[in-house]
């Protein structure tokens, strides 16, 4: 069986003013359909770059990103991105923001009524249907991120890419949104890749956690499977042996073997 998404010996380097800095080196990873994979690492390890490569927003220097055996060389709606700072267009309402995506992706295949129903279904999925006529400035940070997720899901992506989606939120809102994402993952079975620097979040949500070594020339240090049954409940997991063991493994990787040395930057 061939992998759904395959990262095949990816190198990425940036050239700036004659100086070439190697960011990622020899990234090899396969992800199955429906899997939830987190990528964790210290800041500056190139995990956002890796996500941009999968999204097609940045081109690989060598190697290839293969989605269903087809090479990814440009961005597209089948690899929707949830951005860290939501990136909703402030002059459009919640509904119009999602409509922009839906009318572009389904403008030819769905009728106007079908598109409306599809927008409302995605708003319902993130429990934001009540705010459809509000502008982004009128809703809270957590709500904006929910709309950001709805917009990405409305593109009906093959893979949903989440770039530190909860990084800018307070702890309580963050927990609510993590639950919402788990729920969506369970209901839709969308393949998801999430960048995070939060160990608990990674263990709670993921089937596998990809741990990155420190840059420059960062690569995948270790891949940890999280053998926890779904649905997962955070309160029960707080004292669960497997959860704690996974958490410890990630913490040991990040803080013992690959400690972040600030001075090296």
């Amino acid at each position: 069986m061939t992998a759904y998404l395959k990262l095949d010996h990816i190198d990425k380097s940036f050239a700036r003013g004659g100086q070439v800095s190697e960011v990622l080196k020899d990234i090899r990873l396969t992800i199955d359909r429906g899997e939830f994979v987190s990528i964790i690492g210290h800041s500056g390890c190139g995990k956002s770059t890796l996500l941009n490569l999968i999204a097609g927003l940045t081109r690989v220097s060598s190697g290839a990103v293969l989605l269903e055996d087809k090479e990814v060389d440009s961005p597209g709606p089948e690899r929707a991105v949830v951005f860290q700072n939501h990136s909703l267009l402030p002059w459009l309402t919640v509904y119009e923001n999602i409509n922009l995506a839906v009318s572009k992706v389904f403008g030819r295949t769905k009728s106007r009524a079908e598109r409306h129903e599809w927008i409302m279904r995605n708003l319902d999925l993130v429990q934001m249907a009540h705010a459809r006529d509000k502008r982004p400035a009128e809703i809270s940070g957590g709500m904006k991120q929910r709309v950001g997720i709805a917009r990405a899901l409305a593109m009906q992506p093959k893979i949903l890419l989440l770039d530190e989606p909860f990084g800018a939120l307070d702890a309580l809102t963050r927990a609510h949104l993590q639950d919402a994402v788990m729920d969506i993952h369970a209901r839709l079975g969308t393949t998801m890749i999430m960048i995070t620097h939060d160990v608990d979040e990674a263990v709670l949500l993921s089937d596998r956690i990809v741990m990155m070594t420190n840059g420059p020339a960062a690569t995948i240090g270790e891949v940890l499977s999280v053998p926890l049954a779904r649905p997962r409940r955070r309160i029960e997991l707080a004292s669960d042996r497997t959860f704690l063991r996974c958490r410890e493994a990630v913490l040991k990787f990040l803080y013992e073997r690959h400690r972040f040395v600030e001075a090296a930057e």
Binding site: L57, R79, S87, K104
Partner: peptide
Amino acid sequence: DYRNVARILRLNQLEFFVKIMVP
């Protein structure tokens, strides 16, 4: 980020001009 949204949606030049750039 707005440019990235437009690229992911594959907006063409005209759509980008009308829907993102001008507003």
